[in-house]
Amino acid sequence: MIGEMDADSVVGYFRGKSILITGSTGFLGKVLVEKILRVQPDVKKLYLLIRAPDAESAKLRIQTEIIGREIFHVLKEKHGVQFNNFIEEKICPLVGDIIYENFGLDNVQLEELSKDIDVIVNGAATTNFFERYDVAFDVNVLGVKHVCAFAKKCPKLKMLLHVSTAYVSGEQEGLIPEKPFLMGETLRVGTHLDIESEQNLIKETMRELNINCCTKRDERRTMKELGLKRARNFGWPNTYVFTKALGEMMIGHLRGDIPVVIIRPSIITSTLKEPFPGWTEGIR
């Protein structure tokens, strides 16, 4: 168990820090945002990378998908009429997406952001087990590449925290040591994995689909099947855990000397007691 002492030092650590969070609209992301704002109101800024057409839509997503949720009730009561001002001051929406280089931000934004960031939490992922291979690859593999590249531009970065999954270990049984995946490692003896080849395979398959004027439905089915086929070829049960393992390899390969922590949660259920017991979202 984390002692009271450790919990306090973590809370203290967040004072005056600027944190970039990807995936903040997700189930885990909003829990993190709420917790930081509740236990450390003196955090400097939470930069939330939000997929949206423009700044207004990004703000709306934060309103409805994050702070509008029931989990924020405790914080709302605590701040009363000052709640909106508090949120305005602490949360900075960034319109962007990890699938693009520099998240699709312009140079001015990028410059300012990189100078301010102390911690990056990369929680953005597509968690659908049977996602299209191209979509899963863009988010879970290339997204990590873009996060790493950005992290290297942050002069005062103290940590990059990457949220992976316990299931990168596939269907192995027994005790599984928590060791990072090396680039090209697979779960199936005799297979060798090359991330660039996988990327080319995706491009090539998409090109063929376009040449053959396939319907969107056919394209979706083909790309889903390709993901499962590639995952199983290398010993992973589905596209999600396979691309998450590739993402870990990407970090190991590109991190250089940035301090990295990879966490591998298993199944996440409801809140135990904070901010109140039993909050969950979606079908759990």
Rank of each mutant, 00 (worst) to 15 (best):
D8G: 09
S9N: 08
V11F: 01
G12A: 06
Y13G: 10
F14R: 07
S18K: 14
I19T: 13
F27Q: 14
V31M: 12
V31H: 06
K35Q: 08
V43L: 10
L48S: 00
L48T: 00
E56C: 11
S57A: 15
K59V: 03
L60W: 00
T64Y: 07
I66M: 08
G68C: 08
V74Q: 15
E77N: 09
G80Q: 10
G80D: 03
Q82C: 07
N85D: 12
E89G: 03
E89F: 06
C92H: 08
V95G: 03
G104Q: 09
N107Y: 03
N107T: 15
N107K: 07
L110P: 14
L110F: 11
K115E: 09
T127N: 01
N128H: 12
F130N: 08
R132Q: 15
Y133L: 15
A136Y: 08
A136C: 13
A136H: 06
D138K: 10
H146V: 04
V147K: 06
A149H: 06
F150A: 10
A151P: 04
K152L: 15
K153N: 11
K158M: 14
L175V: 13
P177Y: 10
F181Q: 06
G184N: 03
L187R: 04
G190R: 08
L193F: 05
K203R: 13
T205Q: 13
T205W: 04
T205E: 15
M206Q: 11
R207Y: 05
I211N: 08
K216F: 09
R217K: 10
E219Y: 05
L226S: 04
L228F: 08
Y240I: 04
Y240N: 00
A245E: 05
A245F: 04
G247R: 09
L254F: 12
D257Y: 07
I262E: 05
I263C: 13
P265I: 10
I268L: 15
I268R: 15
T271N: 13
K273L: 14
I283L: 11
I283N: 09
R284W: 03
